[in-house]
Design a protein around this nucleic acid. Structure first.
Lengths: 126, 126
DNA sequence: GTTGTATTTAACTAATAGGTTATTTAACCT
DNA sequence: AGGTTAAATAACCTATTAGTTAAATACAAC
């Protein structure tokens, strides 16, 4: 994920349970790095790196308070995640996968052929 | 993301624009590896690897048809993504971040202090 | 059975990720 | 100034990722 689009950066940031746990913690209110480190069996520099990833993804923001650098949640990029996933809803809600498998089995039994472009075998978005 | 939970594996699979494009293509119906490779300036083995990532994440399934191995969408893991992101909706919808920043500024001007655990400064989930 | 088409696997490379410990910076408090 | 606490940075290590080209496999069609 070298230099990637915003959505890729967001997904990459979310692909780590520690980072998701940090976000969950921050829904309760801002927290210092020490506080964020406490729940994990991991050094503070490790958490600091995770925070940097979350920050670069725009998921948290840093403020200053004496020698503390409390982080707070910045959920905006998660809207893009929700917007991206939404169009797929119909595919998991209608048990699309099992239906598709069923249609596929019917089809390959009766009519072997190579997968032509845009074949679509009985199911499309509209 | 060595050996990770299901959600991390899903997010990691989604953290690549090529793989998301492949999923989008598969919403139109199943497709062969050659067909899936066509839109990209990338070798077929590279796409094959992306497909393996998607497969290990449970986002696509493979079938057989002569010498073709058409892939089809398996959207179920995306439900978990939707379920994970949903609780954060209130945080982006209510412009939480700007409100929080405002409250934060008010607070630090009038009452400098170190960030105590569970302080919460005026906003919580219920 | 040889040739052609579709796909996978192998071997390699360069970059990134995620962790460590040790050091440095920053701010507070006597 | 000197000591303490909070956090960031540096230097390092190992594993994984994302791509490449070349070789192997699977099936079809003659």
């Amino acid at each position: 994920m070298m230099t990637a689009d915003r959505l890729s950066t967001t997904f990459a940031a979310l692909a780590d349970p520690t980072r998701r746990a940090i976000l969950a913690r921050l829904t309760l209110g801002e927290a210092s790095v020490t506080e964020l480190t406490a729940p994990f069996a991991m050094s503070m520099p490790a958490i600091s790196k995770h925070l940097k990833v979350l920050e670069r993804a725009g998921l948290i923001a840093r403020s200053r308070e004496a020698q503390w650098r409390p982080r707070r949640l910045h959920a905006d990029p998660l809207k893009e995640v929700a917007d991206w996933v939404e169009p797929y809803r119909s595919f998991w809600e209608q048990s699309f996968d099992r239906l598709d498998e069923y249609l596929h089995d019917l089809q390959t039994q009766s009519k072997p052929h190579h997968p032509a472009k845009g074949k679509g075998h009985g199911r499309s978005k509209n």
